[in-house]
Design a binder for these strands. Structure first.
Length: 743
RNA sequence: GGACGAUUAGCUCAGUUGGCUAGAGCGUUACAUUGACAUUGUAAAGGCCACAGGUUCGAGUCCUGUAUCGUCCACCA
């Protein structure tokens, strides 16, 4: 809520004051809050099944309910633009609000919160921690939702959903069960990216890569049958978990060694020398160690050759079962140093060379991720992605801007099986239960009363929670389903699904959009949305991403407070290219604030000159002109000017709607900016000023008509100021949202 | 290594099927001040549109190549 210093809170009656009282400046602070409550109270955002209208539906990408809004969220202005435009076009519009529990993100934020109090999550039991986070999230959610209101978003709050609402969770469970029943869900002991600091696994998408100059260690293993072989590795500490030394089958240097046995340094454990084409003879020495439990590639090799050895690194990041007493229990980073020293001391270390490599780190805390074997739930995306690729390729789902289509297809093609288990508390607990007698799993949507495998054991539920994206992937259909009558007989779902547009940032094309298509089709046998519109990232004047550490963050709420929501919204769209990154500066917001003021003052001028004329009910140029009293020209000049305006405005209207058809929202806005300010105001008003003020009916009424149209066309972008002006002209009970574009 | 962007005025960016005497915002300069708006108006300065070729009557726009920057993806221990 705005804090108005020493100002009375205006009520809605005062919102539409007489134009005579119109300030010289448009003071958004006097209006925005009241206008929004008026819209909300009068139900302008509420959608319902309306068979006489076509539906237009967008599901809001649910913001994380763990922090304030940032400028990325303000980019959802594009959705508001589409919604409001289609409303004025006569569609039944639904923009469904929601919030995401944002599993790991939220837990991470909360843990930071705890840390400030000198606590950690391990100080709480699961239940307490969960309920504490729940409270934290509910508070944040409320704040976040009010911030969306401040942006003026025409969201249907009556249908808002949270990813952890009971009905949503139930739908998420059903989907998982369907997948399980279809054999697409499997539990496997596989290597996962595990953050020993966060204590959870991640999917491959949550891994951050970091360039790093590391070291390549050359370690010499002695061959039992005589001689030795030197391997090169970046991770010497894992040699204790080796199962083989591997060379290329065509490598002449090692041909004689294949099939022989090597003794691991110090422990003297025996492992075979094997040959596989996977090895690049040019790299290192051409011989490589194979450690299946601690390297993704080695895991595959181990499986292929039937070789295994127990893991030597635990989930706490400490060494274990290495066969060396002084190494067990030591943290990996330290263990590396100890082991290298040992190897060197005993003459096994040939040399160390610098090596450019990529470190896989936790995208949250930066810790180097440890590939560790863990039983997890996986979703086989093979069958899902095929259909999705087809839908995108065949334009069943349209991608805007077009260039992202290729990228999306590539993303889908590269999708690998999805690890959906997370070892964190904050999330939707996986509805998988393990029979204690047979050690088998079953999935149940409802809390099971008895074991569905053996019937009488004390089955246990998996403690893991779903990857946040598993629930997010179902958002379009889940939110609509959860808003249906219990039996779905209201036709709500069928009316709005598939949704019309999915609008989001291009950065989550992979994590979110692609998965929505796959899971959406799986569950509904239909596309989740007809169009994808992607917006760019917000950057500062130097083109850098905004981040707190760089100190270049523009807080959207501060900007709204200072310049008004309309100005911020317009600044995000004006002069940009669809899908391109947006460079935002305070200067630009000021410029847009000035534009809002211009729109306002044109209204003020019209109202002031209107007091001199009587405007007939029906607008339009009439053949019989009222003779002028005086002015800048003769009658012919005036009608000539009006004709010119009519022609020009006709073109503008045509282009405006064409831009919308092509999802070129910025162009439509730029067009209106230019037309209203530099043509309508700077040129036409100046040309017709005197005759309008002197009561020329033709001129006045046509200028008013064009102005009203412009207000409508601008309303999707700057909804507040256009509504305030509209009310001034049409009465306090009226709304521009009730008006329709002329056809 | 693969894919996709970007490169235009001092700065940040538009420029849709080739017709541009290349635009906007901010900044700069000059003039205008009580009647819609100084959160203004009029005017001005400022660009071999990254570079090199090509297609064309004509290229910022299309094609080829190069350079620099950026994003995504795949990555060898």
């Amino acid at each position: 809520m705005f804090i108005l210093q020493n100002q009375p809170i205006f009520d809605t009656v005062l919102v539409s004051r007489q134009i005579q009282d119109m300030d010289k400046k448009y003071n958004f602070k006097n209006f925005e809050e009241n206008i929004y409550s008026f819209w909300e109270k009068e139900g302008y955002f509420k959608a319902k099944v309306n068979s006489s209208k076509d539906p237009f539906c967008i599901i809001l990408p649910p913001p994380n309910a763990n922090a304030d809004l940032h400028l990325g969220h303000a980019m959802y202005t594009y959705e508001d633009v589409m919604i409001r435009y289609h409303k004025l076009l006569g569609y039944e519009t639904l923009w469904l609000a929601g919030a995401d529990h944002a599993g790991i993100e939220t837990q991470f934020v909360y843990e930071k919160h705890l840390k400030k109090q000198g606590k950690s999550r391990f100080d709480f039991d699961r239940k307490t921690l969960f309920s504490d986070i729940w409270k934290f999230v509910m508070q944040n959610r409320n704040t976040m939702e009010n911030q969306l209101r401040k942006l003026g978003f025409a969201l249907d709050w009556s249908k808002k959903k949270f990813t952890m609402d009971e009905d949503i969770v139930s739908i998420v469970y059903k989907t998982f069960k369907h997948m399980f029943d279809d054999g697409m869900v499997y539990r496997a002991n596989r290597l996962v990216n595990y953050c020993t600091s966060c204590g959870t696994s991640f999917s491959d998408l949550e891994v951050a890569d970091r360039e790093h100059t590391g070291k390549l260690y050359y370690i010499t293993y002695s061959v039992k049958e005589g001689g030795s072989v030197t391997i090169a590795t970046t991770r010497p500490e894992t040699y204790l978990g080796d199962v083989a030394v591997m060379v290329h089958p065509g490598d002449a240097r090692y041909k004689s060694l294949v099939g022989k046995t090597v003794l691991l340094p110090i422990t003297n454990r025996e492992i075979p020398i094997i040959a596989d084409e996977y090895v690049d003879p040019k790299f290192g020495t051409g011989a490589v160690k194979v450690t299946p439990n601690h390297d993704f590639n080695d895991f595959e090799i181990g499986k292929k050759h039937g070789l295994s050895h127990p893991p030597i690194i635990g989930f706490d990041g400490h060494m274990k079962d290495t066969g060396l007493e002084d190494i067990d229990g030591v943290y990996v980073v330290k263990a590396r140093k100890l082991i290298v020293a040992k190897l060197e001391e005993q003459g096994f270390l040939e040399k160390i060379t610098p090596h450019e490599m990529v470190l896989h780190t936790c995208y949250r805390c930066g810790t180097t991720l440890e590939p560790l074997p863990k039983e997890q739930w996986f979703i086989d995306v093979g069958p899902l992605k095929e259909k999705a690729i087809e839908q995108v390729k065949n334009d069943e789902i349209h991608v805007h801007p077009k260039r992202f289509k290729k990228q999306l297809i590539q993303i889908l093609e590269n999708f690998i099986d999805w690890n959906v288990s997370r070892q964190i508390v904050w999330g939707i607990q996986i509805p998988a239960y393990k029979c204690q007698k047979k050690n088998e799993w079953f999935i149940s949507v409802e809390k099971p009363k008895k074991c569905q495998i053996c019937g009488n054991c004390a089955f246990v539920q998996d403690e893991d929670t779903f990857d946040t994206w598993f629930s997010s992937a179902q958002w379009p259909f889940a939110t609509l389903m959860a808003n249906c009558d219990c039996d779905g007989s209201d036709g709500f779902f069928d009316y709005f699904y598939p949704t019309t547009v999915m609008e989001t940032g291009y950065d989550i094309l992979r994590a979110w959009v692609s998965r929505m298509i796959m899971v959406g089709y799986f569950e509904t046998k239909d596309i989740p949305f007809q169009h994808i519109f992607l917006h760019g990232m917000v950057r500062d004047q130097k083109g850098q991403k905004m981040s707190k550490s760089k100190g270049n963050v523009i807080n959207p709420l501060d900007m709204i407070q200072t310049y008004g929501a309309d100005a911020l919204r317009a600044a995000l769209i004006f002069g940009t290219k669809e899908g391109g990154d947006v460079v935002l500066s305070e200067d630009k917001i000021v410029a847009m604030r000035n534009f809002c003021n211009k729109v306002w003052n044109i209204g003020r001028f019209i109202e002031m000159s209107k007091t001199n004329v009587v405007i007939p009910a029906k607008a339009g140029i009439q053949s019989g002109s009222v003779p002028m009293k005086m002015g800048i020209g003769v009658e012919d000049d005036i009608s000539e000017t009006l004709k010119q305006l009519q022609k020009e405005f006709g073109t503008v209207q045509k282009q405006y709607h064409l831009h919308f058809k092509k999802f070129e929202f910025a162009k439509a806005f730029d067009l209106m900016y230019d037309f209203l300010w530099h043509r309508y105001a700077d040129y036409y008003i100046e040309q017709l000023k005197e005759c309008m003020q002197n009561g020329n009916i033709d001129a006045s009424q046509y200028m008013v008509k064009v102005y009203y149209s412009c207000l409508q066309m601008l309303h999707p972008y700057i909804p507040f100021v256009t509504e305030v002006i509209w009310k001034s002209f049409h009465g306090e009970d009226s709304s521009i949202m009730d008006s329709r574009f002329e056809t």
